[in-house]
Structure formats: C-alpha cells, structure tokens
C-alpha cells in the first residue's frame, strides 16, 4: 500500500531523513516512534506530498509522489502536527469546506459529514467557532477533517499530544476502530500509545530506522527477559546450579518470610528458559513457588536504541 524506498530528505545541508525504507501493508496500523527531531514528521510530510523527497521513491498504491501527487492526496487523510485549523471558521463550515475541497458534493457530502460528526462526537459544537473549542475537540475536528472523504490511508502526526488522559483514551479507541478498515500511520513519542494502538512499530532515530517489528517482537529482540524464580532451597546450592544454566545471570536474591528464596534472573537470549528452570528444580528436589517471566518494556527498548 505504502512503499518507501531509500528515502532521503535534506533541508539545506541538514539531513532529516537518511535513506530509510519500509512498507506498510493495507489495513496495518503503523506507529512511528522516535525522539523529537528524529525525522518522523518529515517522513509523513513526504508521504502526504507536502514535501518532495530529496532522493529515493515513495509509492502509495503504486503511484509515485513525484508524478501522481494529486491522485495520492485524494487517497490520504492527514492530521498534521499541532492540528492546524482555521480558527475563524465554525466547526461545520470548516468540515464542509474540507469535504468540498475533496470533491464531495450534495447528498454524498451531507452523508459523509453526518458520519464523521457522529464518529468523532462533534454534534454539540457544530456551530461553535474553532478557536472557541477545547484542545480535545480541536483534535477531533482535525480527525474528522482527515476522514471526511473516507480515505483508505490516514496519516496522523501526534494525534494525542496535548490531550488529557480521558481524551487520550477516547482518541486511541477511535484510532483502533479506524484501524480495522484503514491503513494508519501515526507518530508519537508516548510509548503506551504504541502498545495500545499499533500492529507494528518503526523506531526512528536521527533520520534512520533503528527497529522495525511488532511491539512484542521489539521487546523480545532488544530487551531480553527477566525471570522471577522462587524456590525453597539453600542459597549457595541454587546459585551454583544456576551458574551452569546457559545465559542466566542472577540480578538479585532475597529470602522471603516463608523461607522462599526469591531470585530475579536476567537472560540475554530470546529463548524461554522457564522449562529448563522448572526441570532444574525438579531434579534437585527444590519446592518451586514462583516462576514468572517479565518482558522488558518498550520504554527500555526505546531508551536503548535512541540513547546515543
């Protein structure tokens, strides 16, 4: 659906995006993750045909952004960063204007407007001027505007920035609903958001893609695992037995009140070590009280990949 090949974007001598390649399949919700200034917004601006690429190709449905810009724009709904809107227009007039610019007319336009107003919950503010709306409503107007022509692709640049927690949940669930039938690219630097809404994550750092995968894959690939292992056995014996298990380090050990020795283990690999630990306990005749695998969270992965 969207294919980015070796895309480079330079502003003067400054390289904003450096030879990145990725594809987005139809119906996928892709999250762009990265620190501020990593190149997320620039990439989105190229896909939406706002900025021309310096080098490389971007294909949307097989159409090239350089040659078929107008046809591509018609397929895309775009919510730019900071949700720019015309402050002096009333909500309904604004949406009607955007719908008209997308070529919608008459009954079709009225039906689409009614639909997006319903989906985005704008019924109460139709006659209000946009500059009188709260941040949450403005964001919803921005989303409604992006969806009004029912585009197969939605590109949302930080759709939840500046919203309060309730509004964030609302917008996320809206995105989730939309993601069932549309291809969505959204950028964010809020990590739980990615886990909540995205099928796939691209982590961008300094104009390059440093990680690409589902949130689960990224956690396993980059973080390793932590295992909580509790046995009723003497500590030196347990420690020496664990030394012989491959790739396990004891991070922390403490004796619980009931006599359980609780160990926090970390492993490098992706292999699940729980069966091995279980067998070890059985062999040695230890009573196993705890065996739990913890994932390193995405936040940790993000920090590892973007710290330097």
């Amino acid at each position: 659906m969207i294919e980015v090949r070796e895309l480079t974007k330079r502003y003067g001598s400054e390289v904003a995006v450096d030879r990145i390649s990725f594809t987005v399949r139809s119906g996928e919700v892709l999250g762009f993750l990265g620190p501020n200034g990593a190149g997320k917004t620039t990439t989105m601006k190229v896909i939406t045909c706002y900025l021309p690429p310096t080098e490389g190709t971007v294909l949307v449905d097989g159409l090239d952004v350089r040659q078929d810009s107008l046809a591509i724009r018609q397929k895309i709904g775009y919510l730019p960063e900071n949700t720019p809107l015309y402050p002096d227009m009333a909500t309904y007039d604004y949406l009607e204007f955007m719908a008209a610019m997308r070529g919608l007319d008459g009954a079709v336009r009225r039906r689409r407007l009614a639909e997006v107003i319903e989906v985005c919950g704008l019924g109460d503010v139709l006659t209000k001027r946009i500059d009188a709306l709260s941040k949450g409503y403005r964001q919803r107007v921005g989303l409604a505007q992006a969806m009004v022509h029912d585009p197969p692709i939605l590109i949302l640049d930080e759709p939840t920035s500046g919203l309060d927690p309730n509004q964030i949940v609302e917008i996320r669930s809206l995105i989730k609903t939309l993601g069932r039938e549309k291809t969505v690219i959204l950028s964010t630097h809020i990590l739980p958001e990615v886990q909540a809404s995205c099928d796939r994550v691209l982590i961008i750092h300094r104009g390059r893609i440093v990680a690409d995968g589902t949130p689960d894959e990224l956690q396993t690939a980059h973080g390793g695992q932590r295992i909580l292992f509790g046995v009723q056995a003497p500590e030196p014996e347990v420690r020496s037995a664990l030394e012989r298990v491959d790739g396990v380090r004891v991070e922390e050990a403490r004796r619980e009140g009931d006599g359980t020795l609780l160990l926090r283990l970390s492993t490098d690999g992706q292999k699940d070590l729980r069966p091995e630990l279980f067998r070890l306990a059985v062999e040695r005749g230890w009573t196993l009280t705890e065996l739990h695998r913890e994932r390193v969270d995405l936040e940790e992965v993000f920090r590892q990949l973007t710290m330097n």
Partner: peptide, 14 residues
C-alpha cells in the same frame, strides 16, 4: 504561522 498552509497544500489541488 498557523500551520494551516500544510493542510491547504496537501489537499488535492495544485
């Protein structure tokens, strides 16, 4: 200044 230029220039118009 308001950033609306980005909306305007990503509409299907030249």
């Amino acid at each position: 200044r308001a950033g609306t230029i980005e909306l305007l220039l990503t509409l299907p118009v030249r």
